[in-house]
Nucleic acid binder design. Structure first.
Lengths: 340, 340
DNA sequence: TTTTCCATGTGAGTTTTTCTCACAGAAAAC
DNA sequence: GTTTTCTGTGAGAAAAACTCACATGGAAAA
């Protein structure tokens, strides 16, 4: 009766040799002689009763049976290596790859990340501008802040924040070409952070201005670009209280109208289950949530409401003021992939 | 510089002990002494620099660090075991445990299983009468034919057959006490294959006889028992074209009315993903589907329709003949767990 | 064509790992 | 309280892993 598992050390030698395509290279990797690898491969072939390599010519070539075995073994050892690497790794040192929606990365995370790195100097963050959930599973990133509906199977996922959308523009632009009513938007370039103008359509619908003639339009692939264009006075973009909050607070962007539109989607934090269990990931995720709370506690409530109230006194034309109904002020919403 | 992988044999001992929650049980499983397991766990803890078990009381309890490690290791070893099992196992030899709904097992699979075993004499089938999906995951059975809605997570699942229900009774019984109309059912014992009479209620509703007075009732835990009672002339049960088809074809049961009722649930074939990949499971599953096709091809279409048409000529009272709408004849439906 | 380099295979001997055995203490069951 | 069952431990035995030295053969360079 053969045991459930093959001899594991010979299996390790097989995996290294197959991956490297060379007995000598595997030997070097595992810090043993080539003879040891050769013996181990033979031992495994004998235990399994199959030929794992074709031996024709100087170098080994994987047999069809060996090719069947390699993927499962590679994955298995990969999983073990990752899990034990986590065990060896102290809670507050090591590297962490973080994926983040581009606009959020530029306008929220990057201005704040020094708070995290100062608190955890042993952690080396690697930031990736991306809204691709597949990068979580493929291990390109360890933790991701994604914009979407949160339905990513096989991941640990938690809602980070809902959003609301509203128009933003550079104060310089609005000084030279004021926005007194929604109709005045036709005099400005509309800056889209999505490719089909869905965000702006949603806002116009809520403003009962879906059929209003529009001026020139600029379409960009993500909200970071449209926001940057707005910052440069190119036109009016749709912002949200999270990514645009600091820009608004610093007066780099102003909010001409009181109307906000809730997004269908939201920001979520996601990671693989095994990563969620790692202390280094946990401290970063905890930091994300507490940072958001701190942002939404005394300061952004003040700045967002003061700001929007200022605008409503100036541009109350056919857009009605939105009742500030919650202590969190007007949450900003946005369309899927548009915040990306 | 620690190697990429921890010592693999100690890791195997850890996994077995953690899974079993017992050093002695792990020792038995791996065919070594408990002392060997104890040493190996210690060696692993030393190599990783962590404590994997809490040692308070008699038995081991997984520590938080151990709990971090176990899932990855279990999965890794599961993948290796599956891959190597494939290598060792010829396609048409070995043992396969099959779970099957009791009625289907007795009246469909057992009369046919010789066809499979004759075709694959090297395969040793083990049959279990059960409709419990948990047995698939817990490895008590390798493949299961289950009656339900097909929603069993973590399993490979494929629809095998939909069903329709209709009354069946022994010809001997009907000779002495004929069924000329639905009202005549009150003169017979109603044989239930479920505990709440839901099947018969469904059929009576379709027959516009939900309020018809009913005679004596016998409730059984599964359709095999109710069918067997019908075979013994105890009364009228609800049958279906799959489990009752052969009985009907052989004249052991007759169908007094033309009305059939579709089931909410169906028969599904289910197995663990790793089992699905095994050639031995694949040949059995393929055989199941081809056998069903062969059953529904020329012969059962003929026998089922001839049979039902015979009844409609005899008992057309207030039950209207069902239009034979498909080449597969009248499919038989039944209620969840009732076919069990 | 010959020479050189580099690859893997192999058997015997050495080292390391795995395992057994016997004893021990403690917890749990009776 | 006694008995059973559990895990831990050190020393020694057995098995696995590894080294070493020799061997063969393929491929590239001269």
């Amino acid at each position: 009766m053969p045991s459930r598992l093959p001899p594991l050390n010979p299996l390790r030698a097989f995996e290294a040799a197959a991956r490297r395509g060379s007995v000598s290279a595997a030997a070097r990797e595992l810090n043993v002689t080539h003879g040891a690898i050769s013996h181990q491969i033979r031992a495994l072939e004998e235990a399994l009763g199959v030929t794992l390599f074709e031996r024709s010519g100087k170098r080994l070539k994987l047999s069809s049976q060996g090719a069947l075995l390699l993927p499962a073994v590679s994955e298995a050892f990969g999983g073990i290596a990752a899990a034990t690497a986590l065990m060896r790794q102290p809670a507050t040192s090591g590297s962490l790859a973080v994926g983040c929606v581009p606009a959020l990365l530029s306008f929220w995370l990057i201005p704040r990340v020094n708070r995290f790195t100062e608190q955890y100097p042993g952690i080396r963050l690697s930031l990736v501008a991306s809204n691709d959930p597949a990068q979580v599973l493929s291990r390109e990133v360890d933790v991701a802040i994604l914009y979407g509906d949160g339905n990513w199977p096989d991941c640990w996922t938690r809602l980070w924040s809902h959003l609301r959308l509203f128009p933003v523009a550079s104060p310089t632009l609005l000084n030279s070409r004021p926005l007194r009513s929604v109709r005045d938007l036709a005099d400005h370039m509309l800056l889209h952070g999505d490719r089909d103008g869905r965000e702006w359509n949603t806002w116009f619908a809520a403003a009962d201005a879906i059929d209003l003639p529009r001026g020139p339009q600029l379409f960009t692939s993500d909200a970071r670009l449209s926001t940057e264009a707005a910052l440069h006075g190119q036109g009016v973009a749709l912002g949200d209280t999270i990514t645009a909050a600091q820009l608004i607070a610093r007066g780099e962007l102003v909010v001409p109208f009181d109307l906000t539109v809730p997004a269908n989607d939201a920001f979520y934090v996601a990671c693989r289950h095994e990563v969620r269990a790692a202390p280094i990931a946990r401290v970063f995720i905890d930091w994300l949530f507490t940072s958001l709370e701190e942002d939404s506690r005394p300061e952004p409530q003040t700045s967002a409401r003061m700001l929007l109230r200022g605008r409503s006194a100036r541009a109350m034309d056919d857009v009605q003021p939105v009742s500030a109904s919650s202590g969190k002020g007007t949450a900003i919403s946005q369309k899927r992939k548009a915040r990306g």
